[in-house]
């Protein structure tokens, strides 16, 4: 009987999964991610490198509006340091925040002013507003990346495929002005974003060789964290809950057998 209940649940999840199968573009390249599976965690070193890629490449056009600097030092985050349970005290986080210029205000005279970032700030938007962003990108709006890996089916593999998937258009295909060819793009195979990554585009502080593949993997690791920052905490809690419920189920099954022991049913 229980098997049947479980299989019904599985059927339900499959039928839900079938919903997402729709979408344009080539089939994603699949990677073995560190964060996959029931005990998967983020690869902190990769996510730190990924932050560097975001900061030096993506951040020129893409915001990350739901992430504050202190989030980078939270538990389960790329720069978490157990010595600083309060990420606002973490010198690495403070140093990162300071590198950014924040527009604050208005001050007493009603003027906006610039100041270095503090840990409580959100990562700043590269553009003043949506229209400014479109004006700088030939009418295309670079989307916010905070939830990108969850806003696309199979998002992490999708993003990795997209970033490593730029190629020359097939013969005879005429690209619209300013567009690049990418068979993995979910909105067709012409994408307004030019190929952002090239060999050695960043110089990794940890000495890792910055191949396109490496940078793509690292930035996906970082952006997957940004989209699901509580994943490690969630999975850890999940294990505790499942073990607790399993023991409780054993106990209740025993009680059930005890209560019903003299009753034929």
């Amino acid at each position: 009987m229980l098997k049947r209940i479980v299989s019904l649940a599985i059927i339900a999840s499959f039928s839900a999964g079938a919903v997402f199968a729709a979408g344009a573009g080539a089939k994603n390249k699949t990677q073995d991610w560190h964060f996959e599976g029931m005990s998967g965690t983020y690869d902190k070193a990769a996510a730190q490198r990924g932050f560097q890629v975001y900061q030096e490449v993506c951040a020129a056009c893409h915001s990350l509006k739901y992430v504050a600097f202190y989030n980078l030092g939270d538990k389960g985050a790329p720069f978490y340091d157990p010595e600083y349970p309060n990420p606002n005290d973490n010198p690495v986080i403070k140093a990162i925040a300071k590198m950014f210029t924040i527009i604050d205000g208005p001050d007493e005279s009603g003027e906006m002013f610039e100041r270095p970032g503090i840990t409580a700030d959100k990562l700043p938007n590269p553009y003043a507003n949506e229209m400014a962003a479109k004006a700088s990108n030939m009418g295309a709006l670079p989307p916010d990346l905070s939830l990108m890996t969850r806003a696309r089916a199979d998002g992490s593999n999708y993003l990795y495929s997209l970033l490593t998937g730029y190629e020359d258009p097939p013969e005879g295909m005429k690209l619209s002005p300013g567009m690049s060819y990418n068979p993995y793009f979910s909105g067709g195979n012409q994408i307004a974003m030019g190929n952002p990554l090239s060999e050695g585009r960043v110089e990794y502080t940890d000495g890792t060789e910055a191949s396109v593949d490496q940078m793509a993997k690292d930035v996906v690791e970082f952006l997957t964290w940004a989209a699901d920052p509580k994943m490690e905490q969630r999975k850890r809690t999940g294990w505790v809950v499942l073990i607790y419920l399993f023991l409780l189920a054993l106990l209740l099954y025993g009680s059930y057998r005890a209560v019903w022991r003299d009753v034929k049913h």
Binding site: K235, L245, A249
Partner: peptide, 13 residues
Amino acid sequence: VVFLMIFSYFLFF
């Protein structure tokens, strides 16, 4: 409790 285990699997994982 068995149902909650299925629920928890989806919720947490």
